[in-house]
Structures are given as C-alpha cells and as structure tokens.
C-alpha cells in the first residue's frame, strides 16, 4: 500500500476536524462567565453553571421524561423490530419489498410530516397528549434501527445452524432461545442502544406529540430560540453528548465483537 499524498491527508484530517471542533466549543462555553452573548474568547471562566444546572428542577424533570420515553420506545422497538427482522431476513414473498420500505419510511420521510400526521391522528381519535403519545411517535422511527441491526446479523447467520438445531431435536422455540437469540443478542443490544440514543435526542416528532410536556430536546429547543442563561444550555448539551455517547460507543463495540463471533462460524 502506497502512502497517501500530503494534500489528501490534510483534506481528510481537516474534514474530521470540521466534524469535531464545534462540539469542543460547546464544552468551552460551559465555563464562560458571559451569559448574554456568545462572545469569543470568553471574558472569564467559572464552574458555577454546573451548580446552576444541578439546582434547576425543570431540567431534571425534562431529563427524567426523556429517559422514560427513550426506555419505553426502545423496548417497543426491540420487540417489533426483531419480529420484523425475523419475518423478512430470509423470507421471499410477494410484497416483501413494500413491507421493508414501510419500515424505513419513518426515517426516510421528513420528521415534520410524521409529526403532524401523528398529531392529527391523536386529535381525531381524541387521545390526549401523554408520555404514551411521545413514546408512540418515537417507537415508530426506532423500529427501523433495531430492524436493520437484526436483519444484518440474521442474514450473516448461516441457515444451516437453525437446521442443525432442529436436526438435533430442538423445536422452533428451543432453536430460537438456544441458537438464534445468542447469535443475534449483541446485534439486538446494539440496535436497542442506538434506538435509545435516537429517542433521547429526538425533537421534531416530539414537538408535535408532546403537547405541554417537555423532554430534554424540547427544553433545549426553547433555549435555542429564546436564550436565557446561555452557559446553562451548554452544560445540558454536554450532558446530552455524554448520555448519547456511551450507548453509541457500546453499540459499536458490540456489533464489532458480534461480527468476529459470527464470522468464525465456519
């Protein structure tokens, strides 16, 4: 393998820097003493905003709601996404393409369309806004994340493993529990974590299905439109980065390890 030209190296690293530098600035502004503007460089540094966030009940209520919604949406997405993957991973039947398109549709269509459509449906069925309505919206687009992870792993799973299990006397349920589940477990976990991160982060659909409730992204959006204590928003943003960073990193290592295991089957 030849060495990369210097210009390519610079362009590649520059591109990556472009992806990461803005996040560093968010961290920097957590410590600024200036709360009315985004003056650069910050006139002074302080740790007081961490204390302020700690005291703010509205933020913690929003965090609580977001965690609750993300957990529920993830559970629903795990169940429905796994079922769908089980049905579509190998089956060949008429209508398979439209069905798999249907699973992708919620993330392929603009969130605002999904959001308004669901809001209208709730309105027509006279369902009041609640945690349930937010979860319903989130699960809709989280299913595909679990589905994609599960389908990819199921397709790599040699069909002869399932045949071998049945050949040795296991019925369909034993085969699922003893062979399929252990082999797709990490993929499901990874899918679940990504679904969790996606839900924890979601703002557009939530805008339409939350009513007066405030998830963390909704809280942040209102701060972005009408900033009050700007550094407080920064502290919350860093918190959000951390909460989503860990499951994503875990999901990455889970799927990598899973590939190593699944790839060693033969």
């Amino acid at each position: 393998m030849t060495r990369a030209p210097l210009s390519l190296k610079i362009a590649a690293l520059g591109g990556l820097a472009f992806l990461h530098v803005p996040l560093l600035f968010i961290l920097l502004y957590c410590f600024t003493t200036e709360e009315k503007s985004y003056a650069f460089p910050p006139p002074g540094f302080t740790l007081k905003w961490f204390g302020v966030v700690w005291e703010r009940a509205d933020i913690w209520a929003a965090v609580g709601l977001s965690l609750k919604v993300a957990a529920l949406a993830t559970v629903i997405a795990l169940v429905l996404g796994t079922l769908a993957a089980g049905a579509l991973a190998r089956a060949r039947f008429f209508g398979r393409e439209p069905v798999s398109l249907l699973f992708v549709l919620p993330i392929a269509l603009p969130g605002i369309v999904t959001g308004i459509a669901l809001r209208q449906a709730f309105g027509m069925m006279e369902i009041p806004f609640s945690v349930f309505t937010i979860v319903l919206g989130h699960a809709t687009f989280c299913i595909v994340v679990v589905y994609n992870n599960a389908v990819a792993r199921l397709r790599r799973l040699s069909p002869s493993l399932i045949e071998a299990s049945m050949d040795l006397g296991a019925d369909a349920f034993q085969t699922f529990r003893l062979v399929v589940l252990p082999n797709i477990g990490t993929a499901l976990l990874a899918g679940g974590m990504l679904a969790f991160a996606l839900s924890f982060d979601e703002v557009i659909v939530t805008t339409f299905t939350a009513g007066q409730q405030s998830t963390l992204p909704i809280w942040m959006l209102s701060e972005l439109i009408r900033p009050r204590q700007r550094p407080v928003t920064n502290v919350v943003a860093v918190l959000v980065i951390l909460v989503t960073f860990l499951p994503i990193l875990a999901a990455y290592y889970l799927t990598r390890e899973g590939e190593a295991v699944a790839g060693s089957g033969k």
Binding site: S158, L161, E163, M166, D167, G169, P182, N183
Partner: peptide, 28 residues
C-alpha cells in the same frame, strides 16, 4: 419436522454453533 425424525445430519459447512463450546455443541 426434522426434530421428530430419528435421523441426524453432518452438514457440509459443519454448522457448529459458534456461541457454544465444543462440549456444549456435542451435548446440544
């Protein structure tokens, strides 16, 4: 179904369960 037949198969790709030890494979 296969699990109700008194025949067993040695697969071309062996189809050993990658998540189980050799002993657990045989004991499956």
């Amino acid at each position: 179904p296969p699990y109700r037949r008194a025949v067993n198969t040695v697969f071309q790709d062996y189809a050993l369960f990658p998540h189980l030890s050799v002993g657990d494979n045989v004991a499956y």
